Structure formats: C-alpha cells, structure tokens
Amino acid sequence: MITRDPGRFLAYARGVPADPGRATARAAFLVAPEGFRRAEQSAQDNRYMAADEAFDGERAARQHRALHRALARTLPTVCFAGDADTPDAVYPNNVFATAPGRYLVGRMRHPVRQREAVRADIRGFFRDVLGYAEIDLSAQPHPCELTGALVIDRARGLGFCGLSERCDEAGARLMHDAFGLRATLLFDLAPGEYHANVVLAVLAGRAALVCADGFADAAAAEAIAALYAPHALRLDPAEKAAFAGNAIALSADAVWMSAAAAAALRPGRREALAAAGFALQAVELDAIEAGGGSLRCCVGEIY
C-alpha cells in the first residue's frame, strides 16, 4: 500500500506485526570525506549547509575517522575511499542502500551527486563480494534519494517518504517496490526541508523522533507519532536544527546522533529514550555537519 492518507496508513500499520528478522543493520558502510567542501549545487536546496569559510576538511576527516572507530565497536563497519570530485560523498546513504539480498542505487537530483552512483568499487563490493542483486534506479528520471528521502521501519516493512525536489511521488513508488515494503506513507516536507531523515527517525521499529515542523501537514507527523506511542519523541525546532532528528539505531539498545544534536536535546529526552530501551551514543561531527547532514546521513546500512 502507498498512500498520502495518514489515517488510512495508521489503521493499516497498526495491524502489521514485526518480522522475526533484523530491525537494525548487520553491518554499516561509510565514505571518507576526501576533498570535503561546500557543494554549490547541493546548497541550492539544502539550507542546513554552511558557508564556505565554515568548512574544515582536516577536522572533518578526523571526526569521520572517530565515527568509524566508534561504530566499529557496535557492528562491522567498512569505509570506502573518498573522492575530491564528489564533495558530498560523505553522505552515502542517499546513493546506496540495501535490503536482504540486494542493493539499490538511487537517482540523485544534482549532477555533483549523480557522479557517486557510478562508483565501480562500491557497486562491486555489493555485487561481487556480498553477492547482492542490483536494483539500479540511477538512470531513470525520477529523483529518489534512498534513505535520505525514505525513512524505513525495517522491523515491519513500513516506509515514510518525504516528498521534495529530492524525491517525487514516482520515485517514492520505485523505492517502495525496490525495498519490498508493505506500506509507505507519502507526505510533503515543509518548505525549506530537503530530506525526511532530518525530520524523522524510526529507531529499531519501536520508537520515533518526530520533528513536526518539518512536515507540510501536521497530520502526517501525528500519525507517525501515534504509531510509535508511547515512545514517540516530538522534537522542537531547535533540536531539529541541531540534527537531533538525524539519528539512527544500529543495534537494539543504542541510538546514535552527533554530539551537537545530543547537547541540544531538551531535559527528559535521554530518559525517554532509556524508557524505550536505548542508550544515547554521541560523536563530535560539527565539521561534517557544515555539509548539511549529520550522523545518520553518513551511515549506509547493510542488511
């Protein structure tokens, strides 16, 4: 089912049981921030991106290595080399994603990011090393920036797709089919938002971080919060601006976000996460956040 009707989606989703398979990834992949700098094409529709003078490539590289070390203590994590011709490649989850037995290549809106999709080494890793079948959406005309635009509850096969210039309705339908989802809720992002994963995170299928002001229609945000109640945290605009919504659960017992995001959390948020069974893990990523994305954007999941 694919629908724009929050009530219809909620009624269906409440009856979908969790699968016995993995709610979180079995491994992760990163791409190093080689040549990390402001990408002017991406800046056209990413208001979170900083000015040129805020970019510090050396600091970004140090923070990225620290992120790699931290994640590797939780699950196997591989890091591909960066490329100075693709300054946004540090956010690979928009371009490459996986489901059991297959990998997806997304259709990026901007040419500077479309270059990432042709990387033979990343494709070869999934195809030849892991033996995954390929679903290549990169050559068709509809933007579909994978798990930037589409937040997925892997435990129940549910998708939450934010529509913007980075993903249209046709692209959302292509992703729904490619990921093999049971149901996907389509909603327009609020003006100025570019990806759903900045305004929404679903954590191991049992909790959600919802930034309602990032949705054009509050009813969609409220339906998602209702689905994950009592473990739905409604984040305020300041928390969203600090990338607290750009979080990810990579195990059943921990949620990861940047140090700046964690510092911006209002009192009681850590306790609410603990009540849902999650410890909070934070990594300094302020240099990488200059590029308009945070921790979740850096992490590709391998299922």
Results as ranks from 00 to 15, higher is better:
residue 149 A to K: 03
residue 161 C to M: 14
residue 148 G to A: 10
residue 143 P to A: 09
residue 157 G to C: 01
residue 167 C to V: 04
residue 134 E to H: 09
residue 162 G to C: 11
residue 137 L to R: 09
residue 161 C to W: 06
residue 138 S to A: 14
residue 153 D to L: 12
residue 136 D to N: 15
residue 146 L to K: 10
residue 142 H to Y: 01
residue 146 L to D: 11
residue 160 F to P: 12
residue 143 P to E: 07
residue 140 Q to L: 11
residue 139 A to L: 13
residue 168 D to L: 03
residue 155 A to W: 01
residue 172 A to S: 07
residue 148 G to Y: 02
residue 160 F to G: 11
residue 146 L to Y: 13
residue 136 D to I: 13
residue 130 L to N: 08
residue 154 R to S: 02
residue 173 R to M: 01
residue 132 Y to H: 10
residue 137 L to C: 14
residue 144 C to P: 06
residue 152 I to H: 13
residue 158 L to Q: 06
residue 153 D to G: 14
residue 165 E to C: 10
residue 155 A to N: 04
residue 168 D to I: 00
residue 138 S to T: 09
residue 162 G to T: 09
residue 140 Q to S: 13
residue 174 L to D: 06
residue 162 G to S: 12
residue 168 D to R: 04
residue 167 C to K: 03
residue 174 L to K: 07
residue 154 R to V: 00
residue 174 L to Q: 09
residue 135 I to G: 07
residue 132 Y to K: 01
residue 161 C to D: 05
residue 171 G to I: 00
residue 147 T to I: 09
residue 145 E to D: 11
residue 174 L to C: 12
residue 161 C to I: 07
residue 152 I to T: 14
residue 133 A to N: 00
residue 152 I to W: 10
residue 145 E to I: 09
residue 151 V to T: 00
residue 164 S to C: 15
residue 164 S to G: 14
residue 138 S to G: 09
residue 152 I to L: 13
residue 134 E to K: 12
residue 134 E to V: 13
residue 161 C to G: 06
residue 159 G to F: 08
residue 160 F to T: 11
residue 173 R to E: 08
residue 141 P to C: 04
residue 151 V to C: 05
residue 160 F to S: 10
residue 155 A to V: 03
residue 135 I to L: 15
residue 130 L to D: 07
residue 170 A to T: 15
residue 141 P to R: 09
